[in-house]
């Protein structure tokens, strides 16, 4: 268990505009190892929901299997959650989202859950652009089965057992961009200042927002020879850009100098301001986005931040032209053609 949370809260704990305190977004006490990167990610989700004034009960949390997939128990305790089976989070999320398009869906998965057993479902949820915030807590190893290499472990990286991984690693962000994802970002669980706005940006996105969160496994993969250790990531991190996320309701106060920022208006009207350090990095261009990732990789750097975004895209419900009403609210009157029509169908079959 990573920590024991004190029951005491400041009596004047501030509420957000929706009237909720930060505590209203917390969940059960985590049972992950002390210092686990996933707990920091969990906290970033809590912070993002708090800052966005999300109503907790209007959120649905879905996960697969693994350490990461346990985390939905540790945030948003007033939301329904669904810890499904290994690698199948995207399909459960798809069904849930089809049933009620009005809720906010957070899908939590890990690198084993996404890059191996659930690769197919990951790919196809992206293709369909399901309106889902897909957070992959990526530590390069299978924590819950004691540290085997996962498919995102870099070649040559070695965890606690000390044996370097001989296989090529899968870059989930690059893959996501190639598979047609409409919002791709990478964060680091050790950098909350970047991660919280990334999650907020994802939530404003209409479609599948994928965030690969490098989230070190302190028990099995935080060694000096691992490329997913806190130390290594801190030493090798490179951000695409610093950015501000301006929710729809907020007035833009900051002033951005001409040519130094890229402004992206999200589907819900929120604005993301990207402070560009390098003009070759255009996050609305797929080719440039993949190039940036590959270039940094060549230099041994791990690119983070918003990597690619396409706000002008239809999500699954738009593609299939389904009703704007949640399907789970429709009744006999909406759905059943009735006995007269059945009689006509019978007649046509005679």
């Amino acid at each position: 268990m990573s920590y024991s949370r004190p029951g005491f809260r400041h009596p004047n704990e501030p509420a957000n505009d929706a009237g909720y305190t930060r505590r209203d977004y917390e969940g059960a006490v985590s049972t992950l190892c002390a210092g686990c990167g996933h707990d920091s990610t969990t906290n970033a989700i809590i912070q993002a929901c708090f800052e966005l004034n999300v109503e907790p009960h209007r959120v649905v949390k879905v996960s697969g299997i693994g350490c990461s997939s346990k985390t939905p128990a540790y945030f948003l305790g007033k939301s329904h959650g669904f810890n499904s089976v290994h690698g199948r989070m995207p399909s459960i999320a798809t069904g849930a989202n089809m049933a009620n398009r009005d809720l906010l869906y957070i899908g939590v998965s890990g690198d084993g859950d996404t890059a191996s057993i659930g690769m197919g479902q990951f790919a196809h949820a992206l293709r369909r652009n399901l309106n889902l915030n897909y957070i992959c807590m990526n530590n390069g190893c299978y924590g819950l089965t004691k540290g085997q290499d996962s498919a995102t472990a870099d070649r040559g990286s070695a965890g606690k057992k000390g044996v370097p991984n001989p296989y090529e690693s899968i870059d989930l962000c690059e893959l996501a961009i190639e598979l047609g994802a409409s919002f791709v970002a990478r964060g680091f669980s050790g950098d909350k200042r970047q991660l919280v706005p990334l999650i907020k940006g994802a939530m404003a996105h209409n479609g599948l927002a994928f965030i690969d969160v490098i989230s070190p496994c302190v028990t099995f993969n935080n060694t000096s020879s691992s490329t997913k250790s806190y130390h290594y990531v801190r030493e090798h991190i490179e951000a695409t850009n610093a950015f501000d996320f301006v929710p729809l309701q907020q007035e833009i106060l900051a002033h951005y100098e001409e040519g130094t920022s890229q402004e992206i208006t999200m589907h819900d009207g929120s604005i993301i301001h990207l402070h560009k350090a390098d003009s070759s990095k255009d996050v609305t261009n797929r080719l440039k986005a993949v190039n940036s990732l590959e270039k940094e990789k060549e230099k041994g750097r791990l690119l983070t931040g918003i990597l690619y975004v396409n706000p002008e895209i239809e999500e699954t419900h738009d593609i299939i032209n389904s009703t704007l009403r949640p399907l789970n609210t429709l009744t006999e009157k909406d759905l059943c053609p009735g006995e007269e029509i059945l009689e006509a169908i019978n007649s046509a079959l005679r």
Partner: peptide
Amino acid sequence: KVAIIQAEDELAAIGIVIGASWNGA
């Protein structure tokens, strides 16, 4: 007034059914 999703395989097909039913459709 319907959502028909051709899934990538039968695992996803039944996953979609479970997710939707769990959510009340």
